[in-house]
């Protein structure tokens, strides 16, 4: 089944032109399709961050007590911090497999800029982590007694914010891909860079809960996303070239 999609995607061109075609714009979607295929084949990598997200959030009331009012006050921050951690932990593997099997090296030798390869990988990472996290968040909001005004801003802010988190984290993942045990180091170098997203993410929900308009916060999140999608893949591509020469 999966083989079929791959093959049909490439049957269009004559054999001799294939490589040249891959070097052009169509290459991005080939990359995207391959990444998606790989992601869907390793289901544990998709499910684990989500399970982490849910499990750790379920620990929170056990730690801070079941008082509904207190939980409601803490819900936006807790959900956002957990989304941050889930994204971060899943990101360690972003380039690892490709680095180890040599396909990252092959990608770096393509005439096509590495930028698009990084963008494709990050897009797929978001599709399998950030998007499900955002979709799942209302359920967690319910468990944490989040007032109803908070649900929509929570989902929208998570949709925008986790995409930025994936992009920023990709820089850290690329910087540490050549290291043997990057887990904690990755968190150490990337966490400070996550601060603006965290602040405006929780700020969105908080504003809604306080009865204000939250469009300004969403606009800032969107601006961060735009800047991150322009710059972060560039930095990550540079970091990959550094890591490959390790």
């Amino acid at each position: 089944m999966a083989t079929e999609t791959m093959a049909t995607g490439n049957e269009g061109g004559a054999g001799d032109n294939e490589r040249l075609e891959a070097a052009n714009g169509s290459g991005f979607f080939t990359l995207l399709r391959t990444e998606l295929l790989l992601a869907l084949r390793s289901r544990a990598d998709i499910v684990n961050p989500l399970l982490f997200f849910v499990t750790v959030l379920a620990m929170m009331p056990l730690g801070i007590g079941p008082d509904p009012d207190m939980l409601a006050r803490m819900a936006p921050g807790l959900i956002w911090v957990m989304a941050l951690l889930a994204t971060l932990l899943s990101q360690e593997a972003l380039f690892r497999g490709d680095f180890e099997d040599g396909s990252l090296e092959q990608l770096s030798l393509q005439p096509q800029p590495l930028y698009f390869a990084v963008l494709a990988k990050v897009a797929v990472h978001w599709l399998v982590t950030g998007l499900p996290l955002a979709v799942l968040s209302p359920m967690l909001g319910m468990m944490l007694n989040l007032p109803s005004a908070g649900y929509l801003p929570l989902v929208i802010s998570l949709l925008l914010g986790t995409a930025s988190l994936s992009l920023i984290g990709a820089v850290g993942a690329a910087l540490t891909v050549a290291l043997r045990r990057p887990g904690l180091l990755l968190a150490l170098i990337i966490m400070p860079l996550y601060v603006p997203v965290l602040i405006f993410g929780t700020g969105t929900v908080q504003a809604a809960l306080d009865g204000y308009s939250y469009s300004a916060q969403l606009a800032v999140l969107a601006a961060i996303l735009a800047a991150a999608s322009a710059l972060a893949p560039l930095a990550a591509a540079g970091a990959i070239r550094i890591s490959l020469d390790h």
Binding site: M6, A7, N10, G15, E18, R19, T34, D101, Q106
Partner: peptide, 16 residues
């Protein structure tokens, strides 16, 4: 790529 079949790997390198 370990997660792909040989055929998909070659397709990734642009083969029909």
């Amino acid at each position: 790529r370990r997660g792909l079949t040989p055929l998909e790997n070659l397709a990734w390198y642009g083969a029909t």
